[in-house]
Every structure is written in structure tokens, then in C-alpha cells.
Design a protein around this nucleic acid. Structure first.
Lengths: 125, 125
DNA sequence: CATACATATCGATAAAGGCCGTTTTAATAC
DNA sequence: GTATTAAAACGGCCTTTATCGATATGTATG
């Protein structure tokens, strides 16, 4: 495995550690597998937008249809629709169709936990 | 307050509810204040990147210097440095300078909670 | 002082994401 | 069937973010 390590890196590590070979190995072991990172990334990307955060906050109190969310966000229909699509794709909201209305609700309480923890974390700074 | 509501919205709500005026009011109350959303947004933006997630995962086990994180990420020095800057600005990591090395560590255990919850959430899909 | 090296910042380019008017689909009522 | 309305998808334009070589800054050592 150490064949893939550039010489410059090896030299750096040589200077830093008694046992560079061992340290190198443990550094590589710190990398989580791609699937896990991709999964986490999908969730955080879905949350990394003001409109989408506002949608989830609004849905705390219960389900709302897309047209109501347009009022909450004060944004055009197509804009709101695309954000709802992203939240749904990420599994953060679920939908229920009733007649011509589509109702959105929180898909997993973990989504609310994320919002709360992020809020608390930012407060603490 | 209802002066700021477009006529089209009012008409939609008229069709939907017995007491549209009341419903409109409660819809507006669903909006959290800008500061809270900004704070949450800052956290999620910082987490919405594969390299930055990998950095935090690597720091789970303890502090690492920037040069070690270059090995973990297998990315150029300037790229890693800019991600570290973002994580620091977001309060997700803290730094300690020792000689010419800068050591990075998790700034708040809430950061690790976010990673875990996001992972679990995505698994459940 | 000069040199070496770790890290930080700058800046140009490339990639990704967001916005929103328009169009299409789907459900309902007549 | 037509008309109406909610929601979804399309597509062009624009803004934001990411990348990474080059340069600057900071910190040791001789």
C-alpha cells in the first residue's frame, strides 16, 4: 500500500515520526468508506440551503401542502417545487397526495434533530 | 400584515380554508427568525462537502496536523488548507499551533453528533 | 542574516447550485 | 369533451463554491 504514497509525503512523515511506516498506515485507516461519506454528504447538501431549512422548520408543526409552503417562503412556485424535490430525494420529507394537493411532512425525526443540533452548535460560538 | 400578501395567494387560501385570514397568520408564524436560519445554514454549508466530512471523520480519533490531513485526503496543500479554513470559520474545528505545525481537532462534540445522525438517517432510507 | 519547511492566502478557471419564467402533467369540476 | 388549478419538469441565465498553482506569511534552525 505504501507504493501509492508520494515521496514528498514519505519525507514529511519521516521527519515527523519515529515509525513513519506505521503512522502512515494508521492515517489511511482514518478514511471512512465512500458509501458512508456519500450518504452523509447527501443529507448535508440537502440541508445547505436557506429555503430548504425554512421548509423543514415550517413542517415541524405538521404537514403542509406545496401552495402553503409558497406562502411561508414567499417564493415562486417553481422555486419551491425544486427545493421540495431535493428534500424528498434526500429522504428528509415524505409526501401524500390528496386530490390536486401534495402534502409534505418531515420524513424522519432525525431531520429535526439535525436542525436543533446545528442551531445549538452555532449558538455556542 | 395582510397587505403584503399577493391577491393570488389570498384567493388560494380562500378556497382552502374556512377562516383564511387566521390560517394566513399562522402560516407566517411558521417562519423562524433570520438569525437562527443563518446559523443553521452556516453549519450545514460547512458540512456539505466530501473533503470536509472526511476531515471531521479523521479528527474523531484525535487531533492531526494539516500535513497529515493532506495524506488522509490525498489532495493538494492549498485545497486542504482552504477546507480547514472553512471548518474553522464554522466553529466545527479548533486549532493549536505548535512550532511550524498547526494541529486541528473537533471544535464541538455536536459536530460528531451531526455526522452520526446524518449517517443513520441515510441508512434508514 | 539565509535557508527550509508548514501553513495560509491569492487569483484565475472550472464545476455546481439556485432562480424563475415557461411548459407539461395530473386531478377535479362542469 | 373543456376549463381550472396544484404541482412537477424543463431550460437558460446567473451566482456561488471548489480546485489548485503561485505567492506570501510564520516559525524554526544554522
Amino acid at each position: 500500500m505504501s507504493d501509492s504514497v508520494p515521496e514528498s509525503t514519505r519525507q514529511t512523515l519521516d521527519r515527523l515520526y519515529e515509525d513513519p511506516e506505521n503512522r502512515l498506515t494508521s492515517l489511511f485507516e482514518l478514511a471512512p468508506d465512500d458509501e458512508q461519506v456519500d450518504a452523509q454528504l447527501g443529507v448535508f447538501k440537502a440541508l445547505a440551503n436557506e429555503h430548504r431549512i425554512r421548509i423543514l422548520e415550517a413542517l415541524k408543526e405538521g404537514e403542509l401542502c406545496a401552495c402553503e409552503l409558497q406562502v411561508v417562503l414567499d417564493a415562486p412556485q417553481s422555486t419551491v417545487a425544486s427545493h421540495l424535490r431535493e428534500l424528498k430525494d434526500a429522504g428528509l420529507v415524505k409526501t401524500r397526495r390528496q386530490g390536486k394537493w401534495t402534502y409534505y411532512r418531515i420524513g424522519d425525526t432525525a431531520a429535526l434533530q439535525l436542525l436543533e443540533i446545528a442551531h445549538a452548535l452555532a449558538e455556542g460560538e
